[in-house]
Design a protein around this nucleic acid. Structure first.
Lengths: 116, 116
DNA sequence: GTAACGTACAACTTTATGGTTGTAGATGCG
DNA sequence: CGCATCTACAACCATAAAGTTGTACGTTAC
């Protein structure tokens, strides 16, 4: 059941968001435990604002969600989104298998039909 | 068996390369059939040089390989690399499951040991 | 209320990206 | 050979990304 198809833009955002080590680390941490933006910021050697931006990129890609909790914003990883990403990579694998199947068919049928 | 561990830079390049619709399309096409750079270029509404750059990005990420064939360079998708990427996403899933396990343990053991 | 904390957001700099055009070197073909 | 094709690469432009600092504002704690 397809909940909602991903546009090219969605996919771009997902992979783009994952193309940064700090952001991948944020995803890992927030999959394990909800964390406030500031507690995340303490973990990295960069400004609070920089971490805030990384979280925003992840949020736009829906790889994390932010939920207000008092004066903090708790960041939480979204496992379903990562599974969607994995599914995208599975599609590539399917395509590749089509090539193999085609090759198998070719090998098992050494006399392909000719035109005319 | 780990053939060769991926560095942060490797992972960055892989996801970065996949964060573009044209490049994903190139991967799909070249997983199915080896194609020259120029034949790929015909498929998109952009200059040859632009496509050439996209192929270069994919090549640096090792998502495709280029092999000389006469005056052409045949581009071929590398399924193993895509499986490596999928494995990276699996790691995230593993982390998330650890959270679930922890929650399960908490629920099944309503009286956690106290300090002292 | 005041001070400290957590966040949001704007402005700015630097560097990377994605596109262009143009030039030049190999290779294949008539 | 001479010409078309395929590729490589440099230079350039516009935009986006990743970081910084500074300011403003809501919330918590005292």
């Amino acid at each position: 059941m397809v909940v909602d198809a991903l546009t090219d833009g969605d996919v771009n955002r997902i992979f783009r968001a994952l193309a940064d080590a700090t952001r991948r680390d944020i995803v890992r941490r927030t999959l394990l435990t909800d964390m406030s933006v500031s507690s995340l910021a303490h973990a990295y050697d960069m400004s609070f604002a920089a971490v805030q931006k990384h979280v925003a990129v992840l949020e736009e890609a829906r790889l994390v969600t932010k939920e207000p909790r008092g004066r903090e914003r708790m960041v939480r990883g979204v496992p379903e989104r990562l599974r969607q990403a994995k599914r995208l990579l599975d599609d590539f694998d399917q395509i590749w298998r089509a090539r193999i199947d085609r090759l198998d068919a070719l090998l098992s049928e050494p006399l392909p039909p000719e035109k005319g």
